[in-house]
Design a protein around this nucleic acid. Structure first.
Length: 680
RNA sequence: GCUGGAGUGGCGGAAUUGGUAUACGCGACGGACUUAAAAUCCGUUGGGGGCAACUCCUUGUGGGUUCGAGUCCCACCUCCAGCACCA
């Protein structure tokens, strides 16, 4: 964590790490704050449904605290734009795009009537400006206090603000709940397009931390504004055609009731109206800065010192690491545990030498995990976090495998850190993980998630005990595609055990290992087995590359079944087979390899190459279709011409009977595969 | 509501990307071995009809394109995942 602290200092120097007072997520069971990304909805089957700590599933509450943040928002644009250049799954990309939440619109200024104050709003629909019949501010909006003396119903307003404060995020964002709000009496705003006076309201459905914390309400063309206007009897002005009377229409269309802009399309009008009222085009993102402070013991201490004279002072890099003290109780209490350590807390200011105290919070563990792959390239370097040379050699990561749950946490943080370090000159690449695959989770046999709560957990140690580690390993790969969520089957695993036993028996004298040339009578079979082996090598090689382990295993099973039923297999064939099996069943393959007399490990053996000539069959099966329906199949020599095939199939009784009294209108021939006779 | 993904036998799943649907495995049924069971081995196994050769139906539903559709297009249904009063 010395180098994690170093990383913090680099971000701090660049202004990318900062401290601010803000409402934050607090888990009262873990006794710490959480990042937005660490608050989850909970399992779909949970009773309550929203806002839970991802670690303990406790309901998260909001607290107003001063905390450290990393400025991920500075990179929102690039984080979004570069997603499409990555070889990641669509689901992962979409989730991350969702989280970044880009929306394009404009900031427009509304003057407060007869006063010098004005209110900025963000809207994605400047084309509907003529229909803005009132404004709504978030209860936390800074302007409200400034206008206190002008507001006639201040007592009521204050009461509403306090009510909002007492609500947690869950209560406030409950979609089912009816909207609440009240008017700021005594003041009015002016719609910059219509120049008409419009009322200013306060409502908790407007969020303080998105956009400007204020909206222009267009009830005719926004569902939420419509609902609000109906409840409080506010005017509704239709400015986009296309809606049914008396209903809200949130789509686009031609402008109406919009003065000189009438007749324009929504798209054309957006720019023009924004210019007309001297508004500014703006792009908004939903993502917030990353809250990295934690009130926990286990974590890298934040390398900052507070001095009464100098204020906030960074720990000099030479003084790193700031070690965790051992004279504290590390159980979470809600206060940072490091605060209670005398040895840790009291220090001298690095600038003036005066009495000072250390920052007592530690960093989110995700700070460490957002750059570990850089350190892994150069783990023993004592002079720097990583050398440019080592990082250039190893990174970016070619293939990264991990769960979907990292979509909006680790994977965004890592991308952010890499971009920040790149801009500081430490790295020369933009993205940490070029190709990413998400393994699906293995569910319990009942199709639910494995959980202590359901008592359906499969203990891998017990599986290994009963069937062996190789069996367990292969079964997990055989169950289905890597990325699929799939249920475990205690019954199904026996098939893999049988397969491996078949392989084992091959060398335990139950089957004879013979040389290829051995038996004239079985030459045909041996030839076929040799062909099958090479097809299997091809299939396994390609499937491994594509991470399609389930079909690779299936093809090895087919080969084994064939080898066993023929009771023929040369030592050379067995060896090649063992090598392709070895990544799947390392223990068994190694043991059999040694028993064949090898001194070196099987993992030093060269991966077999397939013979291109052997994977092509000389005799092929051609399917005979009549009007697209399979009526017969024939064996033919590879490369047979259409005429030759037509001659062959004419004699087939089933073909004859289907052609009786009919006329062949067209013949479709796919070499070595299929012939389709189209008849009337 | 928005975004992404998926619907194939009793079950997990294959299908060269438009060309024999159900590979491989589990389970089930029948048989061999056994006093018996387990293990192992052999056979059968999508559904219907037929003694049989064969034949009809079948990839969530309904349409369409095509010589030919699990695969492509349109509409719908269901499930999973993510986001959600984001203006």
């Amino acid at each position: 964590y010395r180098w994690t602290q170093w990383l913090f200092l680099q971000l701090y120097k660049k202004g990318l790490a900062y401290k601010k007072q803000a409402p934050v997520n607090w888990c009262d069971s873990c006794k710490t704050v959480l990042a937005n990304e660490q608050v989850v909805d909970g399992s779909p089957r949970s009773e309550v449904g929203a806002g839970k700590c991802e670690r303990c599933e406790n309901q998260v509450i909001q607290k107003e605290l001063e905390q450290w943040f990393f400025k991920v928002t500075d990179y929102a644009k690039e984080l979004l734009e570069k997603i499409d250049s990555l070889d990641w799954s669509d689901a992962l990309k979409a989730t991350q795009k969702n989280w970044l939440g880009k929306s394009e619109g404009a900031e427009i200024e509304f003057n407060v009537q007869h006063l010098t104050f004005n209110i900025q709003v963000f809207t994605t629909r400047p084309d509907t400006l003529f229909g803005a019949t009132y404004l709504v501010l978030a209860p936390e909006h800074g302007l409200i206090k400034d206008l206190k003396l002008k507001i006639d119903n201040w007592d009521e307003v204050e009461k509403y603000i306090n009510q909002t404060k007492s609500k947690n995020k869950l209560e406030r964002t409950d979609l089912a709940k009816e909207k609440t709000g009240l008017e700021l009496k005594g003041i009015k705003a002016v719609n910059p397009a219509t120049k008409k006076e419009i009322p200013i309201w306060l409502a908790d459905y407007v969020l303080t931390d998105y956009g400007t914390g204020a909206i222009m309400a267009v009830p005719a063309h926004d569902e939420r504004d419509f609902e609000f206007a109906r409840k409080f009897d506010l005017p509704i002005a239709e400015v986009i055609s296309g809606g049914a009377g008396g209903q809200c229409y949130s789509g686009e269309g031609k402008l109406i009731n919009s003065d000189k802009f009438n007749g324009l399309s929504s798209e054309e009008a957006r720019d023009k109206i924004t210019k007309f009222v001297k508004g500014e085009k703006k792009v908004q993102y939903k993502i917030r800065d990353w809250l990295v402070s934690r009130q926990r013991y286990w974590g890298a201490p934040i390398p900052i010192i507070y001095c009464d004279k100098c204020g906030l002072v960074a720990v000099p890099e030479k003084a790193l690491p700031v070690l965790l003290p051992d004279d504290v109780d590390f159980k979470p209490t809600g206060e940072s545990p490091l605060k209670s350590s005398k040895s840790f807390n009291n220090v001298k200011c690095p600038k003036c030498g005066g009495a000072a105290r250390r920052e007592a919070d530690t960093m989110d563990t995700f700070v460490c995990s957002s750059w570990y792959f850089l350190r892994y390239c150069d783990a023993h370097n004592q002079q720097e976090a990583f050398s440019k040379k080592a990082v250039k050699y190893w990174l970016p990561v070619d293939l990264y495998i991990g769960g979907m749950e990292h979509a909006v946490g680790h994977l965004i943080y890592s991308r952010f850190i890499v971009k920040a370090l790149r801009d500081m000159g430490y790295l020369k690449f933009d993205e940490p993980f070029l190709k990413m695959r998400n393994q699906g989770i293995i569910l319990a046999e009942d199709g639910r998630k494995m959980s202590k709560r359901w008592g359906n957990v499969i203990n891998p140690d017990e599986v290994v005990e009963a069937y062996g580690a190789d069996t367990m390993r292969i079964y997990e790969m055989f169950m289905g595609p890597l990325e699929d969520t799939k249920p475990w089957s205690q019954q199904g695993i026996i098939g893999i055990r049988r397969f491996l036993e078949k392989v084992y028996k091959l060398i335990s004298n139950e089957l004879k290992i013979q040389n290829l040339k051995l038996n004239k009578n079985s030459k045909f079979k041996i030839d076929n087995l040799q062909r099958l082996l090479h097809k299997t090598i091809k299939k396994v090689t390609e499937d491994v590359e594509a991470l399609k382990f389930n079909t690779a295993i299936s093809s090895m099973m087919i080969f084994m079944n064939e080898a066993v039923s023929n009771e023929q297999l040369s030592k050379e064939q067995l060896e090649k087979f063992l090598i392709i099996l070895s990544p799947f069943a390392p223990h068994l393959a190694e043991e059999l390899w040694q028993s064949l007399g090898h001194q070196e490990s099987i993992f030093t053996a060269k991966w077999p190459e397939y013979d291109k000539k052997l994977i092509i069959d000389e005799e092929v099966t051609v399917v005979v279709q009549i009007n697209g329906k399979v009526r017969a199949e024939i064996k033919a020599a590879r490369g047979a011409s259409q005429k030759e095939i037509e001659k062959l199939i004419n004699d087939l009784t089933n073909v004859k009977s289907h052609l009786q009294g009919k006329e062949i209108k067209k013949v479709i021939y796919l070499q070595d595969k299929l012939i389709n006779l189209v008849v009337n």
